[in-house]
Amino acid sequence: MTMQNHQMNDDQLDAALDALQPPVPSDTLVRRVHVMAPPPQKVFMTPRRSAAAALIMALGAATMLHMANSNSIAPTATPASPAPIAAVADPAGEIPVSDLALGDEATISREPFSMAGMPLE
């Protein structure tokens, strides 16, 4: 009678372990898992986000309204505007346009052109 008290060797242990073969996933499980795909990412509105968005829109609207009102009010100091030609006492048209007070000194063209762009004599 041979002694059987020695332990299993690696091959014998592997052979024993190989007796366990796991199940394959059922078709039902596969189908269920396939439909678990993550939902497409989308912006969702929490109450806090909704409140923040409403506040920003209100502030924007108020700012635009304020700017519109500001533009409708006549400025207290109007910029210097050229005096109307007709107001100049020069009925004969002898005064060169360049000499008329069309603006401040810095901006007046010294070229001898008339208002119509014609060279003056």
Partner: peptide
């Protein structure tokens, strides 16, 4: 891709790992 809504990418990912997870839990 799956996170951006690609269903086939999710299916491929699930098929790649599902059997391993099932067998791991079964063992």
């Amino acid at each position: 891709r799956a996170a951006s809504g690609d269903q086939s990418a999710w299916a491929a990912l699930a098929d790649r790992h599902l059997a391993s997870v099932v067998s791991f839990a079964w063992y």
